[in-house]
Nucleic acid binder design. Sequence first.
DNA 1: TTGTTTCCGGTGGGAAAAAGTGGATCGCAA
DNA 2: TTGCGATCCACTTTTTCCCACCGGAAACAA
Lengths: 152, 152
Amino acid sequence: MFRGASGISIDPKGRLAVPARYREVLVDRCQGQLVATVDPFNPCLLLYPLPEWEGLESKLITFSDFDPTERAMKNILLGHARELEMDNAGRVLLPPELRGHAHLDKKAMLVGQLNKFQIWDDEQWQKHTAATLDQWRSGTLPMSERLKSLSL
Amino acid sequence: MFRGASGISIDPKGRLAVPARYREVLVDRCQGQLVATVDPFNPCLLLYPLPEWEGLESKLITFSDFDPTERAMKNILLGHARELEMDNAGRVLLPPELRGHAHLDKKAMLVGQLNKFQIWDDEQWQKHTAATLDQWRSGTLPMSERLKSLSL
DNA sequence: TTGTTTCCGGTGGGAAAAAGTGGATCGCAA
DNA sequence: TTGCGATCCACTTTTTCCCACCGGAAACAA
């Protein structure tokens, strides 16, 4: 599974070089077939191995078009999802629509989140991390029961 | 199935060029025969492969004319539906009535939603997406049980 | 320990192919 | 006969694929 943040660069054509340590796994699991979409909660992109994405998609199609919140979620996730393929140098080409959404230019961060990756603009990632830690330490975030019983 | 948003342009004659990656599928499934109508929930158009549309249509005819909501839905969908055909350059000609409804001019977005497409004016789509994400992140939307148990 | 060599990951550029765009001609109808 | 519309064709732009180069790191040898 995917862990950790790697600094990566996006070239002028919009190609993102996947760190070498992930490549073999990705080829094994999905022949380099990936799906990128927008993250509903953060100004970044989500990158799934195709089979993993299809699992999520099969849940989304059960959502009702007459529930506004469910419709919105379907719309955002499916409406931005693009199928991508690694080239033989281990790079994926991000379409302009997705790059624009996450404000990606040269420097980016690929963040492993077990079953998927997040793709952040480097600057946004730094800000987001700092902000999250601040919230955390100030104790303003609500705690679910699950969290209260978590030991690190 | 159809996913993702693609920026497309509508030429002065009102022709919309379908992105190349969808064309083969559309020719296979319906020989380029499509149906466009208005989206009851959003200021955009819906574009179905003909067989897919016929499935929906067969459900609509069972709707009662004595239930105001069912009648309205029938009216909107059926009353605006137009049969369209791709030309050999992969373009479909949108009738002025439909273009007007979605405020389509030069720049548009073709948004895949699995069994159908949405056709948005580019500006409207940007606004719609931004507004939805804002609502989402501010946490003001009501959450169904299905949503609460969804993990991305 | 230090220098040299080799391999691998990362990067950029260029060429071929395909897709998008606009124009022109043909036909039909008014 | 003229105007509008539709279909077809050709040109330009974009995209995609592939190859080559550069830099760094590691390994081996002196």
